[in-house]
């Protein structure tokens, strides 16, 4: 069943059309949630919540935007709401995307000259770093660099301007770089400690 037919039938309450739409899109929504929260149980709950909201509102879908964009917008909102609740603050979208704006832009940490990320990044340490990003940065990074959305689509999903999307992505990447460098330095310190402990033990 083509997506357009499934949408039309779902608007009439057809159970198989709902399932078709779910099967078409659940992978991307679940992946988005998983990358955003880093926890499978929460990602499952959020995926269910996003589709529930979608199906509750599907009668109002008029096709002004792509269906997947609309769904992603709902999913991102569900995740951001969850993250806001978790942090216990009633932050605005600007606050969660611009945590250090008072400094006038992204921090320009050039990193130690002896540390290079190339070759030292793996899935685990990048995921850890992504988890530490502010929610807004995280959304844009996952949508653009992981899921391959263009800035105009992200702007629609996030309800912001294209320029804002580009700016958030830049800040997200620079923040990730800082976090990965911090992790690399911490690991180097630990290695040195372990090496000196070994040397001490041999004496």
């Amino acid at each position: 069943m083509p997506e357009a037919d499934a949408i039309r039938l779902a608007q009439q309450g057809d159970a198989s059309a709902f399932e078709r739409l779910y099967r078409l899109h659940n992978r991307r929504v679940y992946s988005l949630c998983l990358r955003m929260v880093g926890n499978t149980a929460e990602a499952e709950d959020l995926t269910q919540e996003a589709f529930l909201q979608l199906f509750r509102k599907i009668a109002t879908f008029r096709g002004e935007s792509a269906f997947s964009t609309w769904l992603h917008r709902l999913a991102v909102n569900v995740v951001l709401m969850k993250l806001r609740k978790k942090s216990g603050t009633e932050s605005s979208l600007e606050e969660i995307t611009e945590p250090d704006e008072e400094s006038g832009g992204p921090r320009r940490d050039f990193g130690g000259p002896d540390l290079r990320l190339s070759g030292s990044i793996d899935r685990v340490n990048l995921q850890r770093a992504v988890e530490q990003l502010p929610p807004g940065y995280k959304s844009v990074f996952v949508l653009h660099d992981v899921q391959g959305y263009e800035h105009n689509e992200i702007a629609e999903i996030m309800g912001c301007s294209i320029g804002n999307s580009k700016s958030q992505l830049h800040k997200a990447r620079m923040r990730l770089r800082e976090l990965l460098h911090e992790a690399l330095r911490a690991k180097a310190r630990e290695d040195r400690k372990a090496a000196s402990a070994d040397a001490g033990g041999e004496d």
Binding site: Y30, L117, S118, I121, R123, F141, V146, R177, L180
Partner: peptide, 26 residues
């Protein structure tokens, strides 16, 4: 910086290849 950001981008791109469906219980 350029090389670091390229490495981050390259690693992030590999994630989409391992996307899986949500468990059936969802």
């Amino acid at each position: 910086i350029v090389n670091d950001l390229k490495a981050i981008q390259a690693e992030a791109r590999t994630w989409s290849a391992t996307e899986t469906d949500a468990p059936e219980r969802v």
